[in-house]
């Protein structure tokens, strides 16, 4: 941390490395951003509301669900339901941002906590992948976050302008861009056979949950169950060895 602070170039390099690493996923963010912009127009949001929501909330899945709940008549707007939905959908960020704590020293804890604003699934995944290779830094995380923010905001506005031209992302296969990206990221995280069972448990738990409950609970349930199984297997193995 002190080395990086003493050398501004390396911090800039890290920031740019984060931007570069997130370029492929920025394309999938952009694809979804376009779709969200189009749908937001259909849901009755004004261009100012689109900009405020994308700038301040900055969470794709929560914003998609918000469009389902949104009403064009202000008096009928379900404010409580919108806030609760955002909370539930984003609960999984507890798990994500907890893993980023090692990137910040104790002195920069407040700055770190505020930086979590720019954490998305995409730059989180890229940064955690870099950390598992012994790389990654706060600047790397921010590089990806700024790129993700710009890609999301710009494409939301373009989509809003396009109106109903792209009504169906599945027609272009673009709905699969996220899945393919996350699958490749997952494969890149493979460390050995000890990953197999936790991942399979996470996948099964997520599939079952997604069939039973609407929303993005499957991410939270699968992530918690799978990681607990992984931790259980790992600590049991160590206990046997000692």
């Amino acid at each position: 941390m002190t080395e990086i602070a003493a050398n501004p170039d390396s911090r800039t390099d890290q920031f740019l490395a984060g931007v570069r690493a997130c370029l492929p996923v920025a394309i999938s963010i952009a694809a979804y951003g376009l779709v969200w912009g189009v749908l937001a127009r259909g849901a009755g949001l004004s261009v100012l509301e689109v900009m405020m929501m994308s700038a301040l909330v900055f969470a794709g899945s929560a914003q998609f669900v918000a469009l389902d709940l949104w009403t064009a008549t202000p008096a009928a707007l379900p404010i409580g339901a919108l806030v609760l939905a955002a909370l539930i959908i984003n609960l999984r960020y507890l798990l994500l941002t907890a893993t980023l704590r090692p990137l910040y020293s104790d002195k920069s804890r407040v700055r770190g906590a505020l930086s979590m604003y720019l954490v998305t699934d995409e730059n989180w995944a890229m940064t955690v992948a870099a950390m598992s290779r012994g790389q990654g830094s706060a600047a790397f995380l921010m590089g990806g976050g700024v790129l993700a923010w710009l890609a999301w905001m710009c494409t939301n506005l373009i989509g809003y302008g396009l109106g109903s031209a792209i009504d169906d992302p599945t027609r272009w296969g673009l709905d699969f861009a996220f899945t393919a990206t996350f699958l490749a990221l997952l494969l890149g995280m493979w460390k050995g056979r000890s990953d197999l069972i936790p991942w399979l448990v996470a996948a099964l738990a997520a599939i079952v949950t997604s069939r039973l409950i609407d929303g993005s609970w499957h991410i939270l349930v699968g992530g918690i169950v799978g990681s607990l199984v992984g931790a259980f297997l790992e600590t049991r193995k160590h206990a046997h060895k000692s």
Partner: peptide, 12 residues
């Protein structure tokens, strides 16, 4: 184990 499990849960 959280990152891999969350990604697996996202993808599956």
């Amino acid at each position: 184990h959280i990152p891999g499990a969350v990604l697996a849960a996202l993808v599956a």
